[in-house]
């Protein structure tokens, strides 16, 4: 067992974890932030994507102890009450989700795409989403949502 400190959605947590605990299990089981989902066991599906120090990371690829001292942002940290983040709003506007299970990971990945490609075209978004699986939407509306969300993030508030 290891004691560690990390910041999640702006709040500092001091936790004790089993050394083998994955970051996603720390978030889900100990901090009870269940927005990040576990959809596979080979780091392929991306449902567990969160931000670690500003970059999108599949939280099943990382041991919790590796996040010592890190700033974590999860899907729960995006909206302010009923006020949605523009990328969340874009997923709603463009019907970019059906069952919703892949959605938190998709949105967190989309923010990373928008950070690196401020106004991405559809082909860029499709290539960048290669590591996030969705079984419901056929990606069509997710791609639309990411393009629109990134666009909106670039506009003055």
């Amino acid at each position: 067992m290891t004691d560690m400190t990390l910041t999640v959605n702006g709040r500092e947590h001091v936790v004790t974890v089993e050394d083998r605990t994955l970051l996603v299990h720390l978030l889900r089981d100990q901090l009870r932030l269940t927005g990040a989902h576990v959809g596979c066991d080979t780091s392929q599906c991306g449902a567990c994507t969160v931000h670690v120090d500003g970059k999108a990371v599949k939280s099943c690829t990382m041991l919790a102890v590796q996040a010592q001292g890190c700033e974590i942002l999860t899907i729960e940290g995006l909206a302010q009450g009923r006020e949605l983040h523009p990328m969340q709003a874009a997923f709603h506007e463009h019907h970019g989700l059906q069952c919703g299970f892949c959605t938190p990971g998709m949105i967190m990945m989309a923010l990373d795409i928008a950070r690196r490609h401020p106004s991405p075209d559809a082909a860029t978004v499709r290539a960048e989403l290669e590591g996030n699986l969705c079984r419901c939407t056929g990606y069509h509306n997710i791609v639309k949502a990411v393009v629109a969300g990134a666009q909106r993030m670039g506009e003055p508030a």
């Binding site: 927005g35 729960e76 523009p86 709003a89 709603h92 938190p104």
Partner: peptide, 30 residues
């Protein structure tokens, strides 16, 4: 920042989904 609004429903219209808000904020309960 955008808040979601609830419209009047009408058959045949592309009304945005009611169930989205919990799912896009990580509040789905599986």
């Amino acid at each position: 920042m955008t808040a979601m609004t609830a419209p009047m429903g009408k058959f045949g219209q592309s009304v945005k989904r009611v169930e989205d808000s919990r799912l896009i904020t990580g509040n789905g309960r599986y």
